Amino acid sequence: MASFWTDHKLAILILIVMASMQPRGSRAADEDPLQDFCVKDTTQQIHVNGFVCKDPAQVQASDFTSAVLKNPGNTSNVLGLAVTAANALTFGGLNTQGVSIARIDIAQNGLNPPHVHPRAAELLYLAQGTLLVGFVTSTPDNKLFALKINAGEVFIFPRGLVHFQLNVGYGTALAFSSFNSQNQGTSQLAKALFASNPPTNDAVLEKALQLSAADVQRLRALISKT
């Protein structure tokens, strides 16, 4: 594990820096911070756009580091996927900094299914394996941009567009994705449609997707288990 971080820490650092260096005129992500830092105060239950700051006098160096991405995720599931996020929810030091990062472990033939990040673009660095990656533009074109990438390559998924990653190599693939938001948000399309809470009206799904009532119920049962 030590050799892995030695080999890839520079690339991971570059991902984070690139995600945070957008020109001001084109920035469409988190607002600029108004102080040096605002470490999340986990004792507060106040609801604001972000998180309440910890008293600066109580902040320590350990607030600015996290081991959340250190270990491989568990890919023994239907999708063969484990996504481990280091964002303001799991790493308080990222609060107000406008960046986050995630570790993506994908088993052989595994899939990170079509999803969107409503608050950030995603810059993916593939550390190990081969992935088929792609995204679809918005209407009216709905154009698919997809290709295979190999270890050492990067790929950008524009903000808010549907995208995916499929492991088409041998063995587990490992990728790291950086985001220009402290909390990028993730919405899997299948879950949003068939596993919402409360459930989406059957008639909406039947009409929109041209499915039978039986198909809708079958997909509800199937997707709720993934």
Rank of each mutant, 00 (worst) to 15 (best):
V204T: 14
H115D: 02
A19Q: 13
T186I: 12
Q35Y: 01
T65Y: 08
S20D: 05
H163K: 07
S177C: 14
N150D: 09
F157H: 06
N142C: 08
T137R: 08
F194P: 12
N142Q: 11
S76C: 04
L89T: 08
F194I: 06
F179N: 04
V39L: 04
I156A: 08
Q45S: 15
K207V: 10
D41A: 07
A85H: 09
S224K: 12
A29C: 11
L219D: 05
L222Q: 14
L15C: 15
D215F: 05
D7K: 15
V39E: 04
E206F: 00
L174V: 15
E122W: 02
Q60N: 10
T96W: 00
A221E: 14
A82H: 08
D7Q: 15
A192N: 10
Q108R: 04
D32L: 13
Q182N: 06
G92K: 02
A175T: 09
F155A: 14
L161P: 09
S196I: 04
V133P: 00
Q210M: 11
L111H: 01
N142P: 00
V78M: 11
R27V: 11
T96F: 01
S100G: 04
V116G: 01
P198C: 10
K143C: 03
A2T: 12
T6G: 07
T90C: 07
S196Q: 07
R220K: 13
N87M: 04
S196W: 03
H47P: 00
V39Y: 04
Q188E: 13
